[in-house]
Structures are given as structure tokens and as C-alpha cells.
Amino acid sequence: MATVEQIQDELNYKVRQAKGIEKTITGGYTGDLLSDVMGNAEEGNVLITIQAHKNSVAVASLLGLPAIILCNGRTASDDMIEAAGEQSIALFETEDSQFTASIKLNSLLSK
């Protein structure tokens, strides 16, 4: 079983909020439309997105997503980091695109 921590250790994505990093991950969901994520992501999925604001945390929290990866060099706002900390949802940033991040996450999951 892959854990959130591997996103930091193996993919070298920058951690912005580490609470919840011990959780296991079951898969991923890539999307920038929050309703699409809401309707389709499954519990345990990592959210791969460019939506670097608090509302992504709300969605992740409601669905039980353990982590969010912000792509294309987007940086998390302070209130997003704070909200993620409160909900224990790990937060990562990368220069990779959503496509690349998805492939990398998949390789990590299929190890």
C-alpha cells in the first residue's frame, strides 16, 4: 500500500502541509472542476489539480481524500495551507503538469 509520504520521498514534490502524511492512498483523481471531483473521486484518492485555494480542501475533506497535489507551479494560499492543516490533508506543490503528476502517482501506486 502506498502512503502519502511517498509523494514526498519518491516523487520529490514539495510539502506545504505535512499533517496526514502517514495516511494510505488508494488511487488518484485528476481534475480542476470541483463538482467533477466531488462526483467522481473516491475516498483515499489523491487529488491532482491546479485549484490552489481553500475550496479544494473542502472537497477533499468531504470525500476523505488524504492529499492534494498542486500542479504547474501553482502555490497554495496561506488560508488553504491552514485549512488543510485543520483537516489533516497533506498538501504538495510541483512544476509537473497534471498529466505528468498522474503518471508518476500511478507508477508509485503500481509498485
Binding site: 480542476d32 463538482s35 466531488m38
Partner: peptide
């Protein structure tokens, strides 16, 4: 741009 307005809200609720 905030990720809303995908046109899936009400259909999601209904489903």
C-alpha cells in the same frame, strides 16, 4: 476559474 460552474452541481445532487 475557481473550479466552480462545471454544470454538474444539480445533476450530481440528483444522482
Amino acid at each position: 476559474s475557481l473550479g466552480f460552474g462545471a454544470g454538474m452541481g444539480l445533476p450530481n445532487v440528483k444522482s
